[in-house]
């Protein structure tokens, strides 16, 4: 039981508790804000696991962009700001069963397989910007370029999907 164990355990408790609130909160805005807490705790877990750059990317992309996008989505679809009763569908018991079964299966399988595995967090190279930049631009250049093309395609797709009606409305006016 080292300091890393204690810190990771505490962050894990925060992460799991806020994750439970994300999927059970009656208020969609509160769920999005609990998602911020969950992702922040996960960024702390990444820091404990020596993945410094991934932690900051997590903060920038997930907390900064994805959650804000979620809030935009919630507001553009006119979700009521207060607590609503019908945020959950009728199949909650089945969903709880499926979630418990998945977590139990994964947990028992993976934890049992790697019970004795020990991460030496002091002996590994910290994945800071220099190390990650070297890894990406020396060994993973092609996947990096493919990822950029994927982002471009997703951007164009999102614009096409949301701009459809406006294009249809503008078409008769031009004639």
């Amino acid at each position: 039981m080292t300091g890393a164990d204690v810190v990771f355990g505490l962050l894990g408790v925060v992460c799991f508790a806020s994750g439970v609130l994300v999927v059970t909160a009656r208020n969609l805005i509160h769920a999005a804000l609990w998602l911020v807490v969950c992702f922040g705790a996960l960024a702390g877990c990444y820091l404990v696991l020596t993945a410094e750059f991934v932690a900051w990317v997590q903060v920038l992309i997930y907390i900064g962009a994805v959650v804000v996008l979620m809030l935009f989505g919630a507001m553009l679809t006119r979700t009521p700001i207060g607590p609503v009763q019908d945020l959950d569908s009728g199949n909650r018991p089945v969903a709880a069963l499926a979630g418990l079964a998945t977590a139990g299966l994964l947990g028992v399988l993976v934890v049992d397989a790697f019970r004795a595995a020990y991460v030496d967090v002091h002996g590994t190279a910290v994945g800071d910007g220099h190390v990650m930049g070297t890894a990406i631009f020396r060994y993973y250049v092609l996947p990096f370029e493919i990822a950029s093309v994927l982002l471009l395609a997703a951007l164009v797709g999102a614009i096409v999907l949301t701009g459809q009606r406006r294009a249809n409305q503008a078409a008769p006016g031009e004639h």
Binding site: F8, C45, D88, S89
Partner: peptide, 29 residues
């Protein structure tokens, strides 16, 4: 640090995600 801590947390989070996908009604949730 024990690896099983991280793996257990990951399994729990995945289970939460499965529950949320199946139980939530709002598409954003």
């Amino acid at each position: 640090m024990h690896l099983s801590l991280a793996l257990g947390l990951s399994a729990l989070l995945f289970g939460l995600g499965v529950y949320g996908v199946l139980a939530r009604r709002n598409a954003v949730a």
